[in-house]
Write a protein that binds this DNA or RNA. Structure first.
Lengths: 203, 203
DNA sequence: GGTGAATGTCAACATGCGTTGGCAAACGTT
DNA sequence: AACGTTTGCCAACGCATGTTGACATTCACC
């Protein structure tokens, strides 16, 4: 994705890794502020001016380092769900619980997920990014657990619907009863659902 | 909610019902255009100018009739889920299927639901509106089915998470595998989930 | 038929947005 | 110490937005 970089790396000491730049601190501050703003405000309301003010730099710096607002969003939101492998014979029967617990850990500690969900709802690029995560990260999980390859997309979509629905009601809409659920309650209720979507015979 | 109306209804023939106005056609056109724009674009991107152009009137008319953008949104998005009663002894065991089918009918034929979901994610007023729907419409359903009143909010929240999650992935994010699901498939998979969230003993 | 309110049109406002280009200071290299 | 590059700030542009007020037109009613 990072095909075009404004800086010329002709003197880069290690061609494989990123060249350390004097502005890395600024770049990082911009990304951190962007993540926070996108998470709380969504794409349209998260203004470059506000992000720059949060990062204590000039708005023009954002443009210099990330080209435009879309580029900033693309750079700020990079998501790796780090989904655990649940295809082992001993873990397959606990796949639902393991995945629900993993998702809760992810959402509680990663504001980028909230950012992407907020942006995905109002921005086409954000929606496509979420489609890519389903395709590249969630679908393989179903693939390794489900025997019939024809059912894999449907099962992955069902899993996504329940997990994203929880995130939506709890972390974005903040519906009081959803916020009030204890972690153990969520796991106890949702684990059987995910387990069924993944491994139960199709109804 | 409609406490302040710009028109004086001193000569209203029937005080109880709404007075028919010569501008009702225009008002209706504005509301219809607003619903469509809010549904497809979300709150921020749905501009008053675009809505007015869709309705073939001047943007200032929108302000005259609905005060400001927030007032327009409040007037355009009024949601009654018309949830069926599933507390009867014969229907209680089919509550999951009945509710899922009802939700699918609602979402497929009512763009206002998509509008509210889109707006609820980026707009505080929209989020509060959705909280109100959960509280006033979804929660009573759980109340009439669930014996333990202490569990009602949690069960309603779980139901909302699955139903809204499906709407999110299928109608807003349009994830291909979720869009590709057939109606019968959705019902077959989700009905047991909703049924369990409503009536199963707490795990 | 004349009057007053309702309806609609037009132009403009203040504001905030993403974005741009120029210029000063700090830096690494030789 | 002189150089070119990088980093940063400043002012401004062009544009779209929500919103407002003045003015024309149409309607209902006496």
């Amino acid at each position: 994705m990072n095909a075009s970089d404004s800086t010329s790396d002709s003197t880069s000491p290690v061609p494989g890794s990123a060249a350390p730049r004097r502005s890395d601190a600024t770049r990082g501050a911009i990304l951190a502020a962007a993540r926070e703003r996108f998470a709380t405000d969504g794409y349209e309301r998260a203004t470059i001016r506000a992000i720059a003010k949060d990062a204590n730099i000039d708005p023009s710096m954002v443009m210099r380092y990330y080209r435009n607002k879309e580029g900033l969003f693309a750079a700020a939101v990079a998501i790796d769900l780090r989904l655990p492998d649940v295809s082992g014979a001993d873990r397959r029967q606990d796949a639902g619980r393991i995945l629900v617990e993993h998702f809760l850990d992810m959402w509680e500690n990663n504001e980028v997920l909230t950012a992407l969900l907020r942006v995905g709802v109002t921005n086409q690029a954000g929606a496509e990014r979420m489609q890519g995560i389903l395709r590249d990260q969630l679908l393989p999980v179903a693939q390794r657990v489900c025997p019939d390859p024809e059912q894999v997309p449907a099962r992955a979509a069902l899993m996504a619907s329940q997990l994203l629905g929880l995130a939506l009601t709890r972390y974005v809409l903040r519906m009081p009863p959803a916020v009030g659920l204890a972690r153990a309650e969520i796991v106890a209720w949702l684990a059987p659902t995910i387990q069924r979507y993944l491994t139960a015979p199709s109804p």
